[in-house]
Design a binder for these strands. Structure first.
Lengths: 106, 106
DNA sequence: TATATGTGCAACTTTTGAGTTGCGCAAATA
DNA sequence: TATTTGCGCAACTCAAAAGTTGCACATATA
């Protein structure tokens, strides 16, 4: 099944994996060592992350080093862009509110 | 249960609601009119979004206008920050790869 | 070759979450 | 006051997802 990046980052374990991989590439075994769950459970998370291309495998003999695909993270950034204008608008609204209060005090 | 903002945006309907509210505040009924599901289903999504403070209610008689809480959206931006450096690093790696290929052709 | 190790896949259980229907309550309206 | 309307809450169904154990396979290593 094709995975969705929003669904992929919804899980705390998967976010933790992404954070780890932002530092350095790791094998599934190495990742499992960081969490309190079985290797297979971590492996399923890896599968989800790989299917939506948030991580990329690098084969080295029988080991697989997974790398963060930072470029894919930008999709999240782009989605967020539609709200950036609202952040600023909200600051303006705060300004308006403050000046309204100021007027009422007079 | 305390909701998680990443879990909140995992659902496509909830993301659509946030997009709608980025334009203007809406009542639950108004939102339900936009989707092919019952008002109660939308109401449950509103509850999730409200619990994690991604939206804020504005009471007006028996109607409730929900507003986007843009400030909360910034938390996503902060989480993404830890990966921004990787985007640029990745571009550098691409440059290195390209120059390596260039050398090999000589 | 025999054995140990790293990995993915399948079957299963349990939990979580999306959607429904039905209900009760408060505010608007006749 | 009686009725309609907007809303939230609870119980229920059903599907998906997280975790487990067990297994098969390929690659190292003795």
């Amino acid at each position: 099944m094709k995975q969705d990046i929003f669904q992929a980052i919804a899980d705390p374990t998967r976010r933790a994996i992404l954070t780890l991989l932002a530092i350095q590439a790791l094998t599934p075994n190495a990742m499992a060592g960081k969490f309190d769950m079985t290797r297979q459970a971590v492996s399923k998370h890896i599968k989800v992350l790989h299917e939506c291309e948030l991580i990329k495998p690098e084969y080295s003999g029988r080991e697989i080093y997974y790398h963060l695909n930072a470029k894919k993270m930008q999709e999240f950034d782009h989605w967020l862009a539609q709200f950036r204008q609202n952040w600023e608008t909200q600051f303006n609204q705060l300004d308006n509110l403050l000046s309204t209060i100021k007027k009422q005090k007079k």
